[in-house]
């Protein structure tokens, strides 16, 4: 029977603080990419250009129907065979950003579709060009209903960052595994990883809720 060693916890703490920073960076960076890519995906699907619409829809479907782990491997290992040599960090952020971008585009789509047809027509009646119609009229109204879904995927991307450990990104999971290999202690490192994920995920839902209310208030769209 193995006993829990608090001294090991304190000893490992600095390494985990560092790894937590890297995990947050991976999640934040990946999410940043996903937020922008998702927007591009959804707008491209709504252009009158049939080829673009079709290609984008199929691409999003492809990304959503294949495992993230495969996509990470693909970018990191298959990329170089086509001359695309990327660091683990870059490859990881691209893979995770594209993956979650596909999911976020669906969330945006729901938000955009919740904006009534009358808003598009009113924008047309004052002759707003299409890009401004999106930026000034549609997207601000599509945002509040999309926030809850966006928040879920923020937590989702955070919990998926351990997948980056397989290509050597030194985030929490990777750190714990390395420690295990060095010391043959697995209980404390993995428990600490779990505790850190829990501590960061739990308040997220609360803050997302607060953020949503704040956005609604700021936009004057109180339910």
């Amino acid at each position: 029977m193995i006993e829990w060693q608090w001294e090991l916890v304190w000893e490992l703490a600095p390494r985990f603080v560092d790894a937590t920073g890297k995990t947050l960076m991976a999640a934040g960076g990946g999410y940043g990419i996903a937020v922008i890519l998702g927007l591009i995906f959804v707008v491209a699907q709504r252009t009158p250009i049939r080829v673009l619409t079709f290609t984008m829809r199929e691409f999003v479907e492809l990304v959503r129907s294949t495992p993230l782990l495969l996509q990470i491997f693909f970018v990191y290992y298959v990329g170089p065979q086509f001359g695309l040599i990327l660091s683990p960090w870059t490859a990881g952020l691209i893979a995770i950003g594209v993956h979650y971008g596909a999911y976020l585009s669906e969330v945006y789509r729901g938000g955009i579709e919740s904006v009534s047809k009358g808003q598009w027509e009113a924008a047309k009646a004052i002759n707003l060009p299409i890009v401004r119609t999106y930026r000034r009229i549609v997207l601000p109204q599509a945002l509040p209903p999309a926030i809850a879904g966006m928040g879920n995927y923020l937590v989702g991307i955070f919990k998926d960052t351990p997948m980056l450990s397989v290509i050597g990104v030194a985030e929490l999971m990777h750190t714990a595994t390395t420690i295990g290999a060095e010391s043959y202690r697995y209980l404390e490192p993995y428990t600490m990883v779990g505790a850190i994920f829990l501590a960061l995920s739990l308040p997220a839902a609360f803050f997302i809720n607060v953020f949503e209310k704040w956005v609604r208030r700021t936009l004057g769209m109180v339910k």
């Binding site: 009358g118 027509e121 009113a122 009646a125 109204q141 004057g220 769209m221």
Partner: peptide, 15 residues
């Protein structure tokens, strides 16, 4: 051309 609609269609996030 300008137009007014049955359901007003004001932009709800603007004053």
């Amino acid at each position: 051309i300008g137009m007014c609609f049955q359901h007003f269609n004001l932009f709800p996030h603007m004053t």
